[in-house]
């Protein structure tokens, strides 16, 4: 039997993580949660997610550090990464690696689920 699509959620905001994971779980996704980039990398390597939702500004290894190491891992290089950016924050420079899509915060949990579904359909991991 095919396993359920696995989503890794990396964000330092506990409340955001609670509602985003709640919304994703309601769609029968396996949701793995990490509260910083370092923890996110460890879990990504262990759990091999099908998609990552990544906050960019985080303490302890931000989204930049995360995505850099993430893309260098051959097993993870092709996994879609949806990057969350706070809508007024300027990155000042282009993100130095490929991100599948940028999502400006604030995002409604419902809209996030819709985006995740679309990407999983594209990569053929949807159930």
């Amino acid at each position: 039997m095919q396993r359920r699509p696995r989503i890794l959620l990396v964000d330092d905001d506990v409340d955001l993580v609670k509602v985003m994971s709640g919304a994703l779980e309601s769609k029968a996704y396996d949701v793995i949660v990490a509260y910083n980039g370092r923890e996110g990398l460890e879990k990504a390597k262990r759990e091999k997610p099908d998609l990552v939702v990544l906050d960019i500004l985080m303490p302890v290894a931000d989204g930049f550090t995360f995505a850099n190491e993430f893309r260098n891992d051959p097993a993870l290089a092709k996994v879609p990464v949806l990057a969350l950016t706070s809508f007024s924050e300027s990155l000042g420079q282009p993100f130095p690696f490929e991100v599948s899509e940028y999502i400006a915060k604030p995002i409604k949990p419902r809209d996030l689920v819709a985006k995740v579904e679309r990407f999983l359909k594209k990569t053929g991991t949807s159930q």
């Binding site: 409340d15 955001l16 509602v19 500004l57 706070s86 007024s88 604030p106 409604k108 949990p109």
Partner: peptide, 20 residues
């Protein structure tokens, strides 16, 4: 900017979550 907006963004997501 980040510190002012983060609580608002989280609160708004919670409201949307309930509303939806």
């Amino acid at each position: 900017a980040h510190d002012l907006q983060s609580p608002l963004v989280a609160t708004q997501s919670i409201l949307s979550y309930i509303k939806d």
